[in-house]
Amino acid sequence: MPFVFLFPAMALLAIFKVFPALFAIYISLFRWDVIQGAFRGLDNYADILWANPTRAEAFWRAMSTTFTYVLITIPLEMGLALVIAYVLFQRLRGRTFYRTAYYLPYVTSTVAAATVFVWIFHPQFGLLNAGLGLVGISGLTWLQEPDGVFQMIGRAVGLDVPGWAAGPSLALVSIAIFSIWHFLGFQIVIFLSGLGNIPEEYYEAARLDGASGRQLFTNITLPLLSPQIFFVFTIATIGVFRAFNEIYVFTFPPLLGGPLDTTRTLNVLVFRTFFQQGQIGLGSALGVILTLLILAFTVIQFRVLERRVVYQ
């Protein structure tokens, strides 16, 4: 009897999840430009990693962009979320309102939200430059700016920053700002649920021993929140690996991943290779690499999740 119940969803999962995962590997072993071509073995992977200079350059550049994106987004986002969650947890007046307000961006679609941010980041009519104009900063072109941020700061104070230290492009930083705004509420909710699980007695005992507010935070809150912190870290990293919609909306097809390819993450490169260039075999190989990257973090995350889940 159970198998009768199982069948419909199992069949669909098999057709659209399990089979495609294997099919993706199969495709990646062939020359496959729109239609299936000759068997290439692992040559597609070799091309991507080192054998074909153009492909390899694009791949390693995308890898570096992806990890830069992770690096400029995750620490700031997690730090902000932690602080806001901690403040919201202290019986703040109207905290339900704040929680709703912070969480709202997370449920809105990335396409709609990014459309609004296209305007906010607009060099002439945008909200951001209007605001910065009041404090005397003007002329930033945000999403259209391929120059590195350190390079730009250096230029502003009259320092010549070498090319290797140029930093992420302002365009990538703009996307990171959007990403932080959009996903902050999710992290706050997770942190709040973690904070709710810490027994009040611990704080009381520490207070009796004369611990300061800061000591309470670093010696009780942080260690007891570490499962949530770790969990949020893996989820957020996976989220950045998977980012596509916002980059698509911000940089738009002919320039997808622009300006000057500075926002072309691995997932965007996959899309460009298989869809825009029609190189399905190569694209699939790139996709397999991206999947392995995501799976590595998923495995870590499942470990954490297993410990967190409470079976009644």
Binding site: K17, A21, F23, S284, G287
Partner: peptide, 22 residues
């Protein structure tokens, strides 16, 4: 049934191209 969970961890990125081809 057996308590071992059916953990389908395949992200959408893994199935995008094969589903498209299919």
């Amino acid at each position: 049934m057996v308590t071992t969970a059916f953990k389908n961890m395949m992200p959408a990125e893994a199935t995008l191209i094969p589903n498209f081809v299919m």
